[in-house]
Structure formats: C-alpha cells, structure tokens
C-alpha cells in the first residue's frame, strides 16, 4: 500500500492546454494565476489586449509573417535546452501560443487562455534576450514576450511571488517592503559594526557632492546586511568618497520591469536620478 501511494504521488497531475494540445504541464497551483483569472471578463480581456497592442499590431504581424520557423531561437533558450528540447519551450512557440493567438482572435480569448499566457511568459521565459540575438532576422522576440507580460500585468494575472515583489516596489520603491526607518537603521547599524575595527570607516548617508552613490539591491539591507559592511570596507580601502541616499529610491532592482509596470519602472529610475541630482554625486554604482 505504501509503495502504491509513493508511486501515485510521484506521478504529477498534468494540465493539457485546450488551445494547444502539445502544451502539457504539471499542475502548479498559484493564487496569482488561479484566483486572479476569476475576476476577468471577456470584455476586460479584449479591451486590455487591444489597449496594449494598439498601433503595434502591424509590428507584431510583421514578426509573425517574417518568422520562418527555423528554430534557431530555440537553440538559444535555456528553457528549451533544459527541457529535453520540448518544442513548446521554444521562444517561437511562446509567441505562437500567446500574442499571435490573441491577434488572430482579435483579442477574443478567455480567462484560461490568459492564465496559460501568464504561465508561459512569467514562468517559462527569463526575458534574457538570447533568442532575439540568435534570430537570423533579428526579430525582437523578447519585446513580444514583454508585451504579453504587460497584458497580464494590467489584468492582474501574475504568479503570486512576482506580483508581491512588484507590489512592494509600487509602495516602498524597494522589492522587500523595507520601511524608510529600517533602511536608515540598517545603514547606521552596519556603520557601528565596522566602525569598531577601522578608524572613521563610514557608511555615509546623504554626503553632498560625493564622487559615488552606491545603490544596493533590496535584499542586501534586508537579508544580506554584511554586503553593506563589505562595500564600506572596499570603499574605505579604495579611498572612494561615496554615499548612500536617505530617501527613496535606493534599491537598484526593478521587479516592476519584469511585470512591465511601466509607471513604477519610471518612478524607480526617476527616484535614483533624483537622489543623484539631490546629492550632486558623479557616478552611480549598482549591485548586480
């Protein structure tokens, strides 16, 4: 009995796309996809698709008509290569199963279709751009995938974790929900940590006219605080006149970019440059 149960649990339940029979995947519950589509209506879906595609439909059609299905993009894709060259992971297939179908059906697709699109563009593509580089015609496949992400974002259909991080950026302009006082506290705490070992080793906040402003990733002050201490040591040893901003924005990451939340993307980049201008720094150093 135990053996039978073990065997049963090893066989994962599969979901087969009703639109593309060859698209077969494990069932992977995610409220960001399963629950959000319940709020969609056909009218909302169609309106959103048409709003995003807008005047660009001819550009997308040009991609559709130019593509010769040579498969070179597939050879560039780590998802395709790491899934036994399953053709449903090929970038061209990802376009075909998402935006090409939306255009063919003039935006008249259902909520399940949107869920499938969200799964494809958010969980089976890293927006790495390699496919666009491999395409002999230079077709910007990543741009197309990004448009599908934009449609899904506007419909609110995004894997929970990705949407949560994007929502953190919306409010806090960092991806880890860090409050303004916690950001400052971490910097001051890290200065204390290193100050005991080095005379006047600073984690300088808002130093006007500094040469360099360092902008960490959100995770560094949240879970990798030692990165701040180490960066301070490097700057100290290198004799760099540097600083960190007291005000939003200080997180150089942008989860908003991955979901194509254009407004928050702008707000993040604007905030980084506003801090640079406010403090009159000459160079921005970003963690990556």
């Amino acid at each position: 009995m135990a053996v039978k149960n073990a065997v049963k649990s090893a066989v994962k339940e599969k979901v087969i796309s009703k639109d593309f029979k060859e698209y077969i995947r494990d069932v992977n519950p995610d409220v960001g996809l399963d629950e959000t589509i319940k709020r969609l209506t056909p009218e909302k879906i169609e309106k959103t698709i048409k709003a995003v595609i807008g005047g660009r439909s001819s550009r997308i059609k040009a991609v559709m008509n130019t593509c010769i299905h040579c498969g070179l993009c597939a050879e560039a894709c780590q998802w395709y290569l790491s899934n036994d060259k399953d053709p449903t992971y090929a970038p061209v297939a990802k376009m075909r199963m998402t935006i090409w179908e939306m255009i063919k059906r003039n935006g008249k697709v259902d909520a399940e279709f949107i869920k499938q699109c969200a799964r494809i563009v958010f969980t089976e593509c890293n927006i790495c751009h390699r496919c666009s580089m491999y395409c002999p015609y230079g077709l910007d496949i990543t741009f197309i995938i990004g448009m599908v992400r934009r449609i899904c974002f506007l419909l609110g259909v995004i894997p929970q974790r990705q949407l949560d991080q994007a929502q953190a950026h919306i409010v806090t302009l960092n991806q880890v929900w860090l409050s303004q006082n916690d950001w400052l506290d971490v910097l001051q705490w890290q200065e204390e940590e290193v100050g005991a070992d080095f005379k006047d080793l600073r984690v300088p906040i808002d130093r006007d006219g500094a040469e360099v402003m360092w902008l960490p990733l959100g995770a560094e002050p949240k879970t990798g605080t030692y990165h701040i201490e180490r960066t301070a040591k490097i700057m100290y040893a290198a004799g760099v006149n540097w600083t960190l901003p007291s005000k939003d924005v200080w997180d150089s990451s942008s989860m908003s970019m991955f979901v194509r939340d254009f407004v928050t993307m702008q707000r993040i980049v604007r905030g980084l440059y506003d801090n640079a201008a406010r403090l009159r720094i000459k160079k921005m150093v970003l963690t990556e």
């Binding site: 409220v31 609110g156 949560d164 929502q167 409010v171």
Partner: peptide
Amino acid sequence: IQTKRLKEGDIFGFQEGIW
C-alpha cells in the same frame, strides 16, 4: 500611511488599497 497590516504575499489585500 499604511492603514492595515498585510500578510506576506497578500496580493489581493494590497489591491484593495491600504494606503
């Protein structure tokens, strides 16, 4: 201000508007 607490990953609570 944030008007009420949000559980980790509560994407629906967030979109109701808590600021």
